[in-house]
């Protein structure tokens, strides 16, 4: 057991070192993109900070150049940006003048609430459908389950969101049509996203279950009088979960960034819509923070997925102990 613990600690240390290296690389690339973005940076910053669509005077442009060190060489500009970042200072938004973290955190909270709710709901539905489906492949139930998943995949989130608002908010008046702040505000957007998760995960999970059900060692278990319920919960499901966790990790990472359409339809704040509005107003400090956050979330989720896989996959665990 100690060896296993050491193995996991080693993996975490290894992953953290990798995370730092990736973050540095991403920081450099992010700054490179900002540096080579077309147009006069000082003018863009001036417009974002002071005028929106208006004019910016030359003396303001000169002031901005000095403040951001825009007339200095590339590396000097990079470290001018990086050094406060390493101290946890992400700067201030050009548009609101608020600290970037104060803008990002509430949006991140909204995105996490929505994404995790949608993921749990979607995975729950996908689980039910895939289990029904995998029980008797080719049966009517299987066809219905696969049909539901296929139809769901063909429905765009935008249309589905509008239809849910039309039915549950405008017609039945059971739920609010837009906004956030209460659980009731979460239901329609989470359902919209959950159906998308459900459609993508059902087919995958079904195939993982079918593969796990075909494993030869299950026959040995049956011969030892192990019940079907135990075989399913303790062996088939566990086996199917290993590849599923990778897909769930990718799905969560995609949801964190890709909920923008749902956020717009339901007038919710979130990372996706913040990204879009920051790009539209050229709010560089916010854009750069979001790019870093996005990279960080992908690396973090991948690390967690690997750790989880290690925890539930006996083969990997044994390999690590032996090594």
């Amino acid at each position: 057991m100690k060896k296993i613990a050491n193995g996991v600690t080693g993996l975490i240390c290894q992953r953290l070192a990798g995370l730092l290296a990736v973050m540095f690389g991403v920081s450099f690339l992010t700054f490179l993109l900002y540096y080579f973005a077309p147009g006069d940076k000082a003018l863009a910053i001036g417009q974002a900070r002071y005028s929106g669509e208006g004019d910016v005077q030359p003396e303001i442009i000169a002031m901005i150049r000095e403040e951001f060190g825009l007339d200095k060489p590339f590396l000097s500009q990079f470290f001018h940006w990086l050094s406060p970042l390493l101290q946890g200072d992400l700067g201030r938004s050009l548009v609101s003048q608020e600290e970037v973290w104060l803008i990002v955190i509430p949006n991140l909270q909204e995105t996490l609430t929505l994404s995790i709710t949608a993921l749990l709901l979607g995975l729950g539905l996908a689980f039910v459908l895939s289990v029904v489906s995998a029980q008797k492949p080719g049966s009517l139930m299987d066809r219905v389950a696969i049909g539901v998943a296929s139809v769901g995949a063909a429905v765009p989130s935008y249309w589905l969101g509008l239809m849910l608002i039309l039915l549950f908010a405008a017609t039945l008046q059971w739920l609010p049509s837009y906004g956030s702040g209460s659980f009731s505000h979460l239901i329609l957007p989470a359902t919209t996203l959950a159906l998308w998760v459900m459609t993508t995960q059902t087919r995958l999970f079904r195939s993982f279950l079918l593969e796990a059900q075909a494993a030869p060692h299950l026959e040995a278990l049956r011969l030892r009088q192990v019940t079907e319920t135990e075989i399913f919960w303790c062996h088939v499901l566990r086996h199917a979960l290993i590849p599923a966790i990778t897909m769930i990790g990718i799905e969560l990472a995609a949801l964190l960034e890709g909920a923008v359409i749902v956020e717009v339809i339901f007038s919710r704040n979130g990372i996706g819509s913040l990204f879009v509005s920051s790009v539209m107003s050229r709010d560089y400090p916010v854009i750069m923070c979001l790019v870093l956050l996005s990279a960080f979330s992908y690396v973090l989720i991948n690390t967690l997925v690997e750790l989880l896989q290690d925890a539930i996959n006996p083969v990997k665990r044994v390999t690590r102990v032996v090594v």
């Binding site: 709901l121 729950g124 289990v131 059971w174 739920l175 659980f183 009731s184 239901i187």
Partner: peptide, 25 residues
């Protein structure tokens, strides 16, 4: 039974959601 459990879970979730929704209204 597994299917039943899953369905009950989903129904319960929507039940809680609908209750919270009506409270908010």
């Amino acid at each position: 039974k597994t299917v039943l459990r899953g369905s009950l879970f989903a129904t319960a979730l929507y039940g809680v959601a609908a209750f919270m929704g009506s409270t908010s209204l």
